[in-house]
Design a binder for these strands. Structure first.
Lengths: 99, 99
DNA sequence: CGGGATCCGTTTCGATACTG
DNA sequence: CAGTATCGAAACGGATCCCG
């Protein structure tokens, strides 16, 4: 359990996994969609997620460079659980409308 | 989602929830069972979990004082999801036996 | 016993500038 | 475009002491 949390129990990783979702997506898109994270941190977290086998990274030798990220089967399994968390949240939170 | 993670996406909270489980438990027991966490941090995290409605706190005016914690229905729902995370982990991790 | 208050080292984060 | 390098700020976590 403690180890499990090390892979995903962080501020950013669940959000990154959620943002990638069931598609192939480029670095810049993740960066743009998340809006608030810095490139440095995003890069670090992505690297760790790759090491943990949750996402895969494919680099194309083009100019300008292109790098695509995709959830692995392990990552998709995890995404399912994260989806349950949002359901859990919706169920128990009064939904503050705005703000 | 970002908000959801704020409630549980931390190093300790999931472990605390997991430790409490489906029982009423005293502060000292949680502290002893977790072993490694400091009292200060445990106190802080418990307080936040109470604020998030995940656990409830009951204080008895005795001497020495006694404080009991229990998962709320919301917390029990969350525990179910955390259990799925450990299943996910067992499924995808080769189980390094020792170390 | 269950904290609160302090102090302080470690880790994490973000802004900015730079590169192939 | 997708990073890397550097730096300083901020959050986090632990140790210790105190208190009702």
């Amino acid at each position: 359990m403690t180890r499990t949390m090390a892979s995903i129990g962080t501020k950013w990783k669940p959000i990154i996994i959620y943002t990638i979702g069931k598609r192939t997506i480029r670095f810049g898109q993740i960066y743009a969609l998340m809006g608030i994270i810095s490139k440095k941190v995003l890069t670090e977290q992505l690297k760790e997620l790759v090491e943990d086998g949750i996402i895969s990274r494919e680099k194309f030798d083009e100019l300008p460079p292109r790098v695509e990220y995709t959830l692995t089967p392990k990552g998709i399994d995890l995404l399912r659980i994260l989806n349950m968390l949002t359901i859990w949240n919706d169920k128990h939170n009064p939904e503050p409308a705005q703000k």
